[in-house]
Simulated assay, not measured.
Amino acid sequence: MAQNIHPTAIIDESAEIGDNVEIGAYCIIEGNVKIGAGTRLRNHAQIRNYTTLGEDCYVDSFAVIGGAPQDLSYKNEPTTLVIGNRCTMREYVTMSRGTPNGKGVTVVGDDCYFMANSHVGHDCVVGNNVIMANSVALAGHVTIGERVILGGLSAVHQYCRVGRHAFVGGLAAVVADVIPYGSVVGVHAHLAGLNIVGLKRRGFSRVQIHEMRSAYRMLFSNEGTMQERIEDVLERFSNIPEAIEIVEFVRAESSRPICLPRD
Rank of each mutant, 00 (worst) to 15 (best):
V126I: 15
I65F: 06
T143M: 07
V126T: 04
N134Q: 11
S96C: 11
I65K: 04
G186M: 04
N128D: 15
F114M: 15
C57E: 01
E77Q: 11
T80P: 00
G67F: 00
V175P: 01
I144E: 01
V156S: 00
I131Q: 01
D111L: 03
N101E: 13
G98Q: 09
M115Y: 11
V59Q: 00
P180R: 02
I65R: 03
V187N: 12
L138I: 09
S73K: 15
G98L: 08
N101Q: 14
L150H: 00
L153G: 03
H188E: 15
D110W: 02
S183H: 08
H165L: 07
R161T: 04
V178Q: 03
A133K: 07
H188M: 13
M132A: 11
C87S: 14
I131E: 01
Q158R: 13
Y58S: 09
V162T: 14
Y74K: 10
G66F: 09
T79P: 08
L150R: 03
P78T: 14
A172C: 06
G145K: 04
V148R: 04
S154T: 02
V93K: 03
N129K: 10
L81C: 07
L191K: 03
L171S: 10
Y113M: 15
C112P: 00
D56N: 15
L171I: 09
M115G: 12
P69D: 11
V178H: 02
R161W: 01
L191W: 05
C57S: 15
F167M: 15
S61M: 12
N85E: 01
R161Y: 03
V126M: 07
R161N: 12
S96A: 14
V174E: 04
Q70V: 06
I149F: 14
G127R: 02
N134P: 09
P100W: 07
K75R: 15
N128I: 06
V175C: 09
E55Y: 08
L138A: 03
Q70N: 07
L72S: 08
C160I: 10
A139V: 03
Y58N: 05
A176H: 10
E146A: 14
A68T: 09
C57M: 06
H157G: 06
V136A: 00
G151S: 00
G193D: 12
V142M: 14
H119F: 02
K75W: 02
A63H: 02
F167S: 05
V107S: 11
A133E: 14
G121P: 08
E91P: 05
T94P: 06
V174L: 05
G145I: 09
G66R: 12
L171Q: 10
H119V: 02
G98E: 04
V187W: 05
D71L: 12
A155R: 05
K103N: 13
G163M: 12
S154H: 10
V185C: 02
H122A: 10
C160L: 10
P78Y: 09
V130K: 04
S183W: 01
D123S: 05
